[in-house]
Design a binder for these strands. Structure first.
Lengths: 147, 147
DNA sequence: TCATTTTATATTGATATCAATCTAAAACAG
DNA sequence: CTGTTTTAGATTGATATCAATATAAAATGA
């Protein structure tokens, strides 16, 4: 009951090398940071990302949005429902395929995301400064290819 | 109702640069990957990380474990309770301070983590190969400093 | 000492996450 | 065409996550 279960070298190996652990850690820290940033607007970091994803000309179906966010599609269904209830997003039926529904920003959603972007820009500027001399965009690109 | 809410350059800026989004994406992908890997043992990626953290000589209090995992301490309380119910971890009272409780692996926990490590090593080897020529350990270190 | 503050953890309530499963529509095979 | 398979999405159930709050022990201060 007293000896370690693994060689100490193994514990160190996993602690120092495991990308899953390192990524979950960073994800939790950044999620909290941006959740607090957007809290005055009633948004979470994930809701902000989703609203931004819907702010271009791109009109994804739910499944495409799930791929973009690397979420399970059931998670997207639930998340969109929350935004829909708040009137930030509307679900539009597809003309060609009755199974498909495409989330789209409402006017209220557009107003809110426009308010959130300056907050994001200021906070992300701080974050970039903190991680110097690392290149944040390069890191983001590596992360996007990870999985 | 039809025009984009943000300049397209802003949408691209956030999509390409936001470390919060990039990290949440990667975290979800890796969580699913390692959850499936450990599923035959009845473990999630987070439970594996927690058991490994308790596999050294380190005997953290709950709050120290929370810091190590960058989790909220209430999340750790709940997660440890699940492991305790399964008999993988026991919560030991602290001699000097009655508020403090220290989670410790049980024999069953030791057996299970020893079974999980070879799975982790094989899968992480694949992951390392996939991200060549990036250095996975360097990436893990950057992520550990992020927040 | 005793009241106040701080610290460590637990509880509650809300959302996030995913696996497993379900329904309905579309695509396909014969 | 009709029966089967595939695809898109929704529902359910379990755990994860954190903010807000509560509790209880320790530390501090008058």
């Amino acid at each position: 009951m007293n000896q370690a279960s693994l060689p100490i070298s193994t514990v160190r190996e996993i602690r120092d090398q495991c990308l899953c652990l390192a990524t979950q850690r960073a994800a939790r820290l950044l999620a909290r940071r941006f959740d607090r940033l957007f809290a005055p607007l009633g948004l979470t970091n994930g809701q902000f990302s989703m609203l931004v994803a819907l702010s271009g000309q791109w009109k994804p179906r739910l499944g495409e949005l799930a791929d973009f966010l690397a979420m399970d599609s059931t998670t997207v269904t639930a998340a969109v429902k929350t935004l829909e209830k708040r009137g930030l997003v509307a679900l539009m039926p597809d003309e060609a395929d009755a199974r498909v529904r495409r989330p789209a920003l409402t006017d209220a959603g557009r107003v809110l995301v426009a308010q959130a972007v300056p907050l994001w820009r200021a906070e992300h500027g701080k974050l970039n400064a903190e991680m110097a001399p690392q290149d944040p965009t390069a890191l983001a690109q590596i992360l996007r290819q990870l999985g």
